[in-house]
């Protein structure tokens, strides 16, 4: 492998990681943008999403690495996996919002955040007690297609994850910018009280944003499973933390910011593993985050909210 090939390969690795972080970061950003809440339960909704996707594919008769599909069956299987995990995760998110967070809506301070930590414990241990903590072999129906680019290798699954991430993100961007509901969301994020007075059903908007955020976590779970062919109960934290960092780096509450942050963190992770060793990846990521925030306190694309005086 030449140095150029190596760099190219690490770029591919980093972009794939970044796509996953971006998707997960979107959930944080959506909820944060609207409620100013760091949602720690998101970590484990993502994990649950991966488990649901795995169980769905297994229920459709796929197991391990043995069944490989192509054409229409492949597309249908993948769509089914995405649909089930996204919808169920969405409802989990709605449930969390409706029953556990709504009563805390007007409470100042970190009470709601603590609730999400509690929910995270509950989700984690429910999965632990029902499915166990061993690594699970996530079904992989994708044909092993490989596109060589010089000495570097691009695999079908990488192309798939980029495309899916891009489609979901563009759709979300379109949704928040141009649809009535999306506009209502942004209005709620700006000023919930004013939005309410202008006829926005704030409760519904918040619930829907929880649904979308959690459904995206479900989609990330499915993508994660397809990409790594693995599901494990403790997978939520490391990926979640980096995704959250990505959301902040890009400017939390900002949809393009979450995408940019995710891709950057993915690239930093891959390139720092090459240059320094993966043991130092987190140190590099967080140092960079501190540095960026010192000079741009609202993140790369975020704008500091004017002091409400």
């Amino acid at each position: 492998m030449t140095a150029v090939d190596l760099f190219l390969q690490q770029l591919i690795n980093g972009l794939s990681l970044g796509a996953m972080y971006s998707l997960l970061a979107l959930g944080f950003t959506l909820v944060y943008g609207i409620m100013e809440l760091i949602n720690f339960s998101h970590f484990n909704v993502f994990m649950v999403g991966c488990m649901i996707a795995m169980l769905t594919l297994q229920a459709m008769g796929l197991s391990g690495q043995t069944v490989i599909l192509s054409g229409a069956p492949l597309v249908l299987t993948l769509l089914a996996g995405f649909a089930v995990s996204m919808v169920l995760c969405g409802f989990i998110g709605v449930g969390i919002e409706r029953f556990l967070l709504r009563p805390l809506r007007n409470v100042k301070g970190p009470a709601a955040m603590i609730t999400t930590i509690g929910v995270s414990y509950v989700l984690f241990n429910l999965v632990l007690l029902t499915l166990g903590s061993d690594s699970k072999n996530f079904p992989n129906p994708l044909p092993p297609v490989v596109f060589p680019i010089g000495g570097a290798v691009l695999r079908l699954r990488e192309v798939l994850i980029w495309i899916t991430a891009a489609v979901l993100m563009l759709a979300l961007n379109y949704f928040t910018r141009y649809t009535k509901l999306g506009k209502a969301m942004r209005a709620t994020a700006q000023d919930a009280e004013a939005a309410r007075m202008m006829g926005v059903e704030v409760d519904r908007v918040i619930m829907i944003s929880f649904f979308i955020g959690s459904a995206l976590a479900g989609a990330s779970g499915m993508i994660f499973g397809l990409y790594y062919n693995l599901a494990k109960v403790d997978m939520g934290f490391a990926a979640g933390l980096r995704a959250f960092t990505a959301a902040v780096l890009g400017g939390i509450g900002n949809v393009p910011g979450a995408m940019l942050g995710g891709v950057l963190i993915g690239l930093i992770e891959a390139l720092s593993a090459q240059a320094l060793g993966s043991a130092w990846s987190d140190v590099v990521i967080f140092s960079l985050l501190v540095l960026v925030l010192v000079f741009r306190p609202a993140g790369l694309l975020g704008r500091l909210a004017p002091n409400k005086s």
């Binding site: 556990l100 709601a112 603590i114 509690g118 414990y121 509950v122 007690l129």
Partner: peptide, 11 residues
């Protein structure tokens, strides 16, 4: 698990 439930209920 019990711990998580206590936390949520307290909040």
């Amino acid at each position: 698990l019990i711990f998580g439930v206590i936390l949520v209920v307290m909040m």
